[in-house]
Structures are given as structure tokens and as C-alpha cells.
Nucleic acid binder design. Structure first.
Length: 200
DNA sequence: TGTTGGATCAACT
DNA sequence: GTTGATCCAACAC
């Protein structure tokens, strides 16, 4: 799949978060790690919207950790969790409205051998089927928080790929706001996260 | 200054 | 189905 400089514009991210989440499926995520180019196609995402969403980090108000979510859409929000993992989010909507889309799963497209190097088990097959795993594979950490997604370090592109089916469900791994059907995924991909499959 | 729990994953039983 | 790994932001004191 050839894809040259077709980055999603700022306007893409400034739309309502549920629309952005839905439209992100099938888009290509690229990260430049040194001289390496790492790319994956999005297959699973979740929306976290505003102070009224109890599962959203912004529900407690603006803090040092979540402040990028309060800013303009089209930036990365990366946070550390469970002492071991990072999670990548895409900030959405206008400045002052805190919302983001969590990237939960991608299909590796480019740089797979480099992603594999980051795991101790060299035979590991599924490297990007889960939010913590894909950050590890892409070498995304706290240093990449707040990056401009219309820039050159970390960005999303439309490569003309069309997802044939999109399904919707409850979000995974949260205790509050469980009733909202704000998770979107491609049911035909094997890179949908394991917990995501189990919890149906 | 101290405590607590989390948008996870892998390795167990 | 359960548990351990392992950090830091948030909040209570």
C-alpha cells in the first residue's frame, strides 16, 4: 500500500470525538524512531469524552497529567499506567474541550522487525494487539506526550484503505462509564486486543 | 510525607 | 480465573 504525505489535517481532529474515533479505523499511524519508520493500520479505538465521562481522565478536571487533552485536537496524549505500560491517545475537538481517542490495536505495516526487537521473546507474533503492547512496539513513551500529529515525528495518514465492517461495544478495562458504547473495532482483524475479544 | 489504585499484559493454576 | 510486575499522579494528611 503506497501512501505518500496524505496526513490527516487539523480539521479531522477538531470534529466530534465519536466521529473521529469511527473514522480513525483503517488509517495509518507512523512514528519516526531515530531513522526507523514504524507504521501500523488502526483496527481498534475507544473514545473518552469530556468531564462528563467518568472514565475519561479529564473527569477530575485539568491536571498536569491530562492537560494536553484540554488543548487543541490533533496532538498526542500518552500516559503511563500499571507501572509498566504507556497508552497512546489522539486528542480531539477544540481547545478547552477535553477529549481523546485511545488507540487499542493496530496491524503492523512497516518496521515489524524493529518492533519485534523490543520484545525479549524473538518469536513473538502479535506485537501490536493492545494499547500497552503497541506503545512498546512503537517505542512510544512519556517523551512523546503532546506531539503535534500534523508534524513529522508522529502522524496519521489516510492511505485509501477502507474498513469493510466496523463494530461498536463497551470500552475495555474501565470501572466507570461502562455503559457507553464508545469502542470501535474492525471485527475482521486479528489484531483486535485479546481482552477486547473476550469481553465481546 | 504517605497511601492508593489504574484506559495492561503475561505467566501462572 | 488469578496474580505479579512496577511507577507515578492524585489526593489525604
Amino acid at each position: 500500500m503506497i501512501c505518500v504525505n496524505n496526513k490527516l489535517s487539523r480539521d479531522f481532529y477538531l470534529r466530534p470525538t465519536l466521529k473521529v474515533a469511527h473514522d480513525l479505523l483503517g488509517k495509518f499511524l507512523t512514528y519516526k524512531s531515530g531513522s526507523k519508520l514504524l507504521t501500523g493500520r488502526l483496527v481498534e479505538v475507544e473514545a473518552y469524552i469530556g468531564k462528563g465521562d467518568p472514565a475519561c481522565h479529564a473527569a477530575v478536571g485539568k491536571t498536569k497529567r491530562n492537560e494536553v487533552m484540554f488543548g487543541l485536537g490533533g496532538y498526542s496524549y500518552i500516559y503511563f499506567i500499571y507501572g509498566m505500560y504507556y497508552c497512546l491517545n489522539v486528542v480531539t475537538e477544540d481547545e478547552g474541550f477535553p477529549a481523546a481517542v485511545l488507540i487499542r490495536g493496530v496491524e503492523p505495516v512497516k518496521g515489524v522487525e524493529y518492533m519485534r526487537q523490543r520484545y525479549s521473546n524473538p518469536d513473538k507474533n502479535k506485537l501490536t494487539d493492545g494499547p500497552g503492547k503497541l506503545c512498546k512496539a512503537f517505542n512510544l513513551t512519556g517523551k512523546d506526550n503532546g506531539l503535534d500529529l500534523t508534524g513529522d515525528k508522529l502522524y496519521l495518514e489516510d492511505c485509501g484503505y477502507k474498513v469493510s465492517r466496523i463494530e461498536r461495544s463497551q470500552r475495555i478495562g474501565i470501572k466507570k462509564g461502562v455503559e457507553k458504547l464508545w469502542r470501535f473495532y474492525d471485527p475482521d482483524s486479528i489484531y483486535v486486543s485479546k481482552r477486547g475479544i473476550k469481553r465481546k
